[in-house]
């Protein structure tokens, strides 16, 4: 390890490479220093998180004021949730608590936070309810609650697209995020019956370690696997509904995000 800490620019270089999954491009002496130095490692992670957040903010701002306004709510709610259940473990993992739609093709994508839409904190609920109400009003203005309609609504809920994941998967569908040229051998939208066996396929000749995550339409992780193979068989007991699946490599690069409709 060099006896001086990294300069701010060296931290920035590593953070950028870490975010884009191009760590290997970082000069060896910088990587070696970070391996040994806790302080610089902490800075790299913090700066990587901050620039990811900045990207999210910019992207959200350019899309609409409304989105910008809601942005920090889940983050703040996430913290409230933590304090509520123990008040001690304080982490800073913004990518997990923020919308995913503005991620770069090879961004350091973590899992979509399953807590993002968790109804444990009131703020989440309020936010979700607001968005849901808006969408409901747009789509189903005449529906009022009655027992039979409630059942239908429940099922409709299970197929309601998750805005951020929907956006992400559509970017892969349009080829906007195939920078890594990862080859997937199934359709972007897979339709299956609830009792069907679901097998996902891709090309992985180098046998890289890949993480597969399946998320429901609330963003909750329902299945997770690590594999070096080219196929994965999913569990058999998916409830009816809309799901998303993501493939991430060991450097946190998001390789693919597809949809799964269980009917």
């Amino acid at each position: 390890m060099t006896d001086r800490h990294l300069t701010e620019e060296e931290i920035a270089i590593y953070a950028e490479a870490f975010k884009s999954g191009a760590k290997k491009k970082v000069p060896k002496h910088i990587r070696n220093h970070v391996k040994e130095c806790n302080r610089c490692a902490e800075e790299v992670v913090a700066v990587e998180q901050a620039i990811s957040q900045l990207d999210e903010n910019n992207s959200s701002r350019s899309k609409s004021r409304k989105l910008t306004a809601v942005f920090w709510v889940p983050v703040a709610a996430g913290v409230t949730l933590l304090i509520g259940i123990g008040g001690y473990l304080l982490f800073y993992n913004q990518p997990d608590t923020s919308p995913v739609e503005s991620r770069e093709p090879v961004a350091a994508v973590d899992t979509i936070s399953s807590g993002e839409k968790k109804p444990a904190a009131d703020t989440f609920k309020m936010q979700d309810q607001k968005q849901e109400t808006e969408k409901q009003e747009a789509r189903e203005p005449s529906e009022v609650s009655s027992p039979s309609l409630q059942d239908k609504n429940l099922l409709a809920e299970a197929y309601k697209p998750h805005p951020a994941l929907e956006n992400l998967s559509s970017r892969f569908e349009k080829g906007e995020m195939r920078g890594s040229r990862f080859e997937i051998e199934v359709d972007n939208l897979i339709k299956v019956n609830a009792r069907d066996t679901i097998v996902l396929r891709w090309k992985n000749p180098a046998e890289k370690e890949l993480s597969l995550e399946v998320l429901d339409n609330q963003g909750n992780k329902v299945e997770e696997k690590t594999t070096t193979k080219e196929t994965v068989r999913l569990k058999d007991d998916f409830d009816k509904g809309l799901y998303y699946w993501k493939l991430v490599d060991s450097d946190f690069n998001l390789l693919f995000c597809g949809k799964l409709r269980v009917e």
Binding site: K35, S114, D251
Partner: peptide
């Protein structure tokens, strides 16, 4: 489930930390 949410975030943080050990 609330705790699981925290643990998953922690797990992601740990994976990042491990990544910074680079070739090790």
């Amino acid at each position: 489930s609330d705790n699981q949410f925290i643990i998953r975030n922690e797990a992601e943080y740990l994976k990042k930390i491990l990544s910074l050990f680079d070739d090790e």
